[in-house]
Write a protein that binds this DNA or RNA. Structure first.
Lengths: 164, 164
DNA sequence: GTGCTTTCTTAATCTAGATTAATGCACAGG
DNA sequence: CCTGTGCATTAATCTAGATTAAGAAAGCAC
C-alpha cells in the first residue's frame, strides 16, 4: 500500500487491462466508467473523499477490467495492489465491512432507480443524494451516470428551471 | 435464526414495512421486487439455493423496505432476524464476506448492463449467466428483471427464434 | 487579452421499447 | 368435462429519450 498524488485527468485504470490496484481516496475525486462499442462513456461510480474505487467484478471473476478509472480533480490516493491479496483479505476491519455493505446498498438503490424511475426522477434523486459533489462534477458526467445523454439532461434542467 | 418452509407464492416481506428478517435459501427459489407508482413490478434479484436475500438498503439506512420478497417455488429458508443484529455482525465468516463481495460484483455488472446494453443484449447476458434458473422462472419475471415489459421480451424471443 | 478546444444548450427528427388491446393456451378447481 | 384465471404472444399506436446538427458559453494555453 502506497500513497500517491494524481493530477486531474490522469487515468489510473484502463478497460481491457488487468486490475492492478484498488484506490482509497484521501483527497480529491475519482470516477470509474465504461466505454461501449459506440464509443459512449457511462459513469459507474464517483468516489470522493473516503471512498474506495476499483473494478470488483474483474477482481473476483478474473480477467481484464471493463472499467476506466480517472481523476476528476487533483487527488491524493492510497493504492492497494490487488494482485498480492484476494479481495476478501482486503476486507478485514469492521469499517471495511460496513463500507462494502453500503456499496451494495447504493448499488441496490441505483438498479431500482434505473429500472423504475424516469430520467428526471433519477436526476432529482442524484441531486438530493450527492449534494456534496454535484458542483464538482461536469454535467456531461452526471448525464452518463444517470444513463442518459448530456442533451437529455440539459432539456430536463431547462424544464426544471422554467418551472421555478 | 430459524429454519422455515414456505409455499410457492408466499410473501415474506412487504414494501412499506420494516425489514424483520434476511433469508438464506437452502432449497427452492425466492425473488425480491419493487412495485412502482404505476403498479408495475420490477424484479431486483432472484435467489436460488445458497443465496442470501434481504433489503440491504433499508437495513442500513433504516426506514421501511422498498422491496417485496416472495417464493417462486416451495422453499426451505434460514431466517435471520435483522432487528437483533446490525448488518455487519451478520458478516462474520470469510464465506460471508466473499458472498457480499460477489453481490457487489453482480450489481456492478447489472448497472453497467442497464446503462450501456440493449434489451436484447441484456437478455442474452441473462441467459448465459443464469442458465440454472432460466427455466424455473416465468418469462414475465425475467422481463421485469431486465427492465423491460413482457411484450418486449416476447418480441425479442420471437426475433431470436426466427434467426436460428 | 486572443484564439482554440471543450462543454452546454436548443431544436428537429428518429427509434427502441412502452402501452393498449385482442387472441390462443395451459392447467387448476368445481 | 367444463370454465375461469393467469400467462405468453402478436400487432397497432404512442412516447421518452437518442441522435444529429448548430450555435453560445466557458475554460485554458499561449
Amino acid at each position: 500500500m502506497k500513497t500517491i498524488q494524481v493530477k486531474k485527468g490522469e487515468i489510473l485504470q484502463r478497460a481491457g487491462e488487468p486490475v492492478q490496484y484498488g484506490y482509497k481516496v484521501n483527497k480529491g475525486l475519482l470516477r470509474s466508467y465504461t466505454i461501449d462499442e459506440k464509443g459512449k462513456e457511462h459513469v459507474f461510480i464517483f468516489a470522493p473523499e473516503g471512498w474506495y474505487i476499483s473494478d470488483m467484478d474483474a477482481q473476483i471473476n478474473g480477467g481484464n477490467s471493463d472499467l476506466f478509472i480517472d481523476a476528476i480533480e487533483d487527488s491524493e490516493l492510497e493504492a492497494t495492489p490487488s494482485s498480492e491479496f484476494n479481495l476478501s483479505e482486503l476486507v478485514t476491519t469492521n469499517e471495511d465491512t460496513i463500507r462494502l455493505i453500503k456499496r451494495a446498498a447504493v448499488l441496490q438503490k441505483r438498479v431500482i432507480m434505473l429500472m423504475s424511475a424516469s430520467a428526471r426522477e433519477r436526476y432529482e434523486h442524484f441531486m438530493k443524494t450527492y449534494k456534496a459533489i454535484v458542483n464538482r462534477v461536469p454535467q456531461r458526467m452526471i448525464a452518463t451516470y444517470l444513463g442518459i445523454t448530456p442533451e437529455a439532461l440539459s432539456k430536463i434542467r431547462g424544464e426544471m428551471a422554467r418551472e421555478k
